[in-house]
Simulated assay, not measured.
Amino acid sequence: MNGRADSETPPGIAEEGHVEAAGVPDDDEGAEAARATDDDGDDPAEVARRARWTASGSGALLTLAGLAASLLRLTGSSPALVPAAYALGAAVCALAAVLGARGHTRRALWLLIAGVMVMALGDQFD
């Protein structure tokens, strides 16, 4: 609408003076059916729970992998910096697992990335 008094009412505005959602009926049954077919109809609490489990599970898995690699490199003939880098990366991933379990999933993601990068950097010294 351009503000003129003689402009037409757009088709989305009903006679009673309220705006209907695009394609969603005004009655309770239609609105409930539209919510059931919504693409992102996940419960926000369930999404947060899955994010916490994913962050803490990934952190624990990467921690175990880093500790195993550190122990394997420690028994070999590699420089001392290599197992230390794997152990440090595993410690960072363990911190990420703890933060992820507490709900700080964004920080946990970045710490997981940093921990894997430390492990990869340590692998370059071998």
Score class of each variant (00 low, 15 high):
residue 71 L to W: 09
residue 20 E to Y: 14
residue 8 E to V: 13
residue 100 G to L: 11
residue 39 D to G: 08
residue 12 G to N: 11
residue 25 P to D: 04
residue 121 L to I: 15
residue 50 R to I: 13
residue 3 G to K: 09
residue 80 A to M: 06
residue 123 D to K: 14
residue 44 P to A: 12
residue 96 A to Y: 00
residue 49 R to E: 15
residue 2 N to P: 06
residue 67 L to A: 06
residue 52 R to G: 02
residue 67 L to F: 04
residue 59 G to N: 07
residue 121 L to R: 14
residue 22 A to G: 02
residue 68 A to T: 11
residue 112 L to Y: 10
residue 40 D to P: 11
residue 7 S to Q: 09
residue 100 G to W: 09
residue 21 A to V: 09
residue 39 D to L: 08
residue 122 G to N: 01
residue 69 A to M: 08
residue 6 D to N: 10
residue 80 A to P: 11
residue 40 D to L: 13
residue 103 G to E: 12
residue 112 L to I: 11
residue 55 A to S: 02
residue 35 R to E: 04
residue 117 M to W: 07
residue 38 D to I: 14
residue 95 L to K: 10
residue 40 D to Y: 15
residue 107 R to Y: 06
residue 33 A to P: 03
residue 120 A to V: 15
residue 111 L to Q: 00
residue 78 S to E: 12
residue 89 G to K: 04
residue 75 T to Y: 06
residue 88 L to C: 08
residue 108 A to V: 02
residue 87 A to V: 00
residue 57 G to P: 07
residue 117 M to P: 02
residue 73 R to V: 10
residue 99 L to F: 01
residue 17 G to L: 06
residue 19 V to R: 03
residue 25 P to L: 05
residue 106 R to I: 04
residue 51 A to R: 14
residue 23 G to S: 00
residue 71 L to P: 07
residue 82 V to D: 00
residue 109 L to R: 11
residue 54 T to I: 14
residue 114 A to F: 09
residue 29 E to T: 06
residue 75 T to Q: 07
residue 79 P to V: 05
residue 5 A to G: 10
residue 17 G to M: 09
residue 19 V to T: 10
residue 111 L to N: 01
residue 68 A to L: 08
residue 119 M to P: 05
residue 55 A to L: 03
residue 105 T to V: 15
residue 104 H to R: 15
residue 72 L to K: 11
residue 99 L to N: 00
residue 46 E to H: 12
residue 10 P to S: 14
residue 41 G to S: 14
residue 124 Q to P: 07
residue 19 V to I: 03
residue 87 A to K: 00
residue 38 D to A: 15
residue 21 A to C: 06
residue 113 I to Q: 05
residue 102 R to Q: 15
residue 76 G to C: 01
residue 5 A to T: 12
residue 41 G to R: 13
residue 54 T to F: 12
residue 40 D to H: 15
residue 2 N to V: 13
residue 16 E to N: 04
residue 121 L to N: 12
residue 70 S to R: 00
residue 118 V to R: 08
residue 69 A to G: 07
residue 109 L to I: 04
residue 108 A to K: 01
residue 56 S to A: 14
residue 60 A to T: 09
residue 29 E to F: 14
residue 9 T to E: 10
residue 102 R to W: 11
residue 43 D to V: 04
residue 28 D to K: 01
residue 49 R to G: 12
residue 93 C to H: 03
residue 61 L to T: 15
residue 51 A to H: 11
residue 90 A to R: 01
residue 90 A to K: 00
residue 17 G to K: 05
residue 126 D to A: 03
residue 15 E to N: 09
residue 1 M to H: 13
residue 125 F to D: 01
residue 110 W to D: 07
residue 99 L to W: 00
residue 83 P to G: 02
residue 59 G to F: 04
residue 13 I to R: 12
residue 61 L to I: 14
residue 78 S to A: 12
residue 91 A to E: 01
residue 63 T to C: 01
residue 123 D to R: 15
residue 86 Y to P: 02
residue 68 A to R: 10
residue 23 G to K: 02
residue 81 L to S: 12
residue 55 A to M: 05
residue 82 V to F: 01
residue 85 A to N: 02
residue 3 G to M: 08
residue 60 A to G: 10
residue 83 P to S: 00
residue 57 G to E: 10
residue 83 P to C: 01
residue 72 L to R: 13
residue 8 E to R: 10
residue 100 G to A: 12
